[in-house]
Amino acid sequence: MLEIEKLTLAYGKAPAVSDLDLTVGEGEAVSLIGPNGAGKTTTLTAITGLIKPASGTIRFKGAPTGGRKPESLVRDGMALVPEGRQIFSTLTVGENLRLPAADLSRADAESAIQRELERFPALASRLGDPAGGLSGGQQQMLAISRALLCRPQLLLLDEPSLGLAPKIVDDVFEALEGLRTEGVTILLVEQNAIRASQFADRTYVLNAGRVVLSGTREELADAELLTDSYLGAL
């Protein structure tokens, strides 16, 4: 579904990510973890086409993404739940949900939105309210719903648990578990290393722009190994 080869990303001359190799197979859930500033968000931003790589290739469904616009990748089946949720706060909850369903017929859009409201019932009573008035957890639900309404084959999530109460984090991971059973391929970026590596089939640990460790859930079950790599001891 997603193949990244020798990807180098830089802001000016300072490299943010160096020689990154990463693959996400169809139906797989992969997590990319690492401390602040490791280059996780930069990697996701490059995958969505918002920044251009300094070198290396990104392939989505077998085709290189170089030169493609973010909206074209979205139409092709890629969606992002961005860091900090980035819901449109001046639009209503309903308008936020209608945006990604713009290409659907009215009836199809209504039923797709209805499915999302069943997934996150808390949003149903707030459809007419400005999205900026939602709680942090509700905003995250809205951001996930909005991404799902893009009908993604590959869902990218950037720190979906950031700043949320533990109970809400449980809800978010429960929703992700549901998506996995629906067959959605997931690439999850998280600082919550233990939680993310327990959820994902495979995990990559990124530190200072390089992959320092990668493995399956079973291989990374040793929490100490994960912590060491996370802190840069490896």
């Binding site: 909206e71 945006l99 309404l149």
Partner: peptide, 20 residues
Amino acid sequence: IQMRAAAENFRTAQLVGVRS
């Protein structure tokens, strides 16, 4: 609605499929 979304955050609007 797409224009209002783009005015609030152009990059995120692109990420929900709004044609820039």
